[in-house]
């Protein structure tokens, strides 16, 4: 699979990573090379093979419905680049 510039720009946008225009071509080449490499999987017969979610041979463990966490707003906010009045702050979002 060969990715073109436009596709790379689209993926970069989906991933919210700014990629300078002049890097798109090079990146498209690299990503295409990786995709070509992984496409050898097409050779493997996977008919009726269940896709693996986890290698851990167990089922989902559950916790009790008890409040055991939270209640430490300062700790939660202490690393925030911008906070005010107990909130995280970001540029205005228009809905």
């Amino acid at each position: 699979m060969s990715l073109d510039k436009a596709t790379v720009a689209k993926i970069a946008h989906l991933a919210r990573i700014k990629v300078p225009d002049d890097e798109l071509d090079h990146l498209a080449g690299e990503l295409s090379q990786i995709l070509t490499f992984v496409e050898q999987l097409g050779e493997v017969d996977t008919q009726d093979v269940p896709p693996m979610t986890s290698v851990a041979a167990q089922t989902l463990r559950r916790r009790k419905d008890e409040v055991t966490d939270g209640g430490y707003r300062d700790a939660v906010l202490s690393n925030g680049p911008e906070t005010a009045e107990g909130f995280y702050v970001v540029p205005k979002v228009v809905e």
């Binding site: 009045e85 107990g86 909130f87 995280y88 702050v89 970001v90 540029p91 205005k92 979002v93 809905e95």
Partner: peptide
């Protein structure tokens, strides 16, 4: 959205 003219606050 109404706490600040240019900012959005997150809770």
């Amino acid at each position: 959205h109404d706490q600040h003219p240019a900012k959005t606050y997150i809770d």
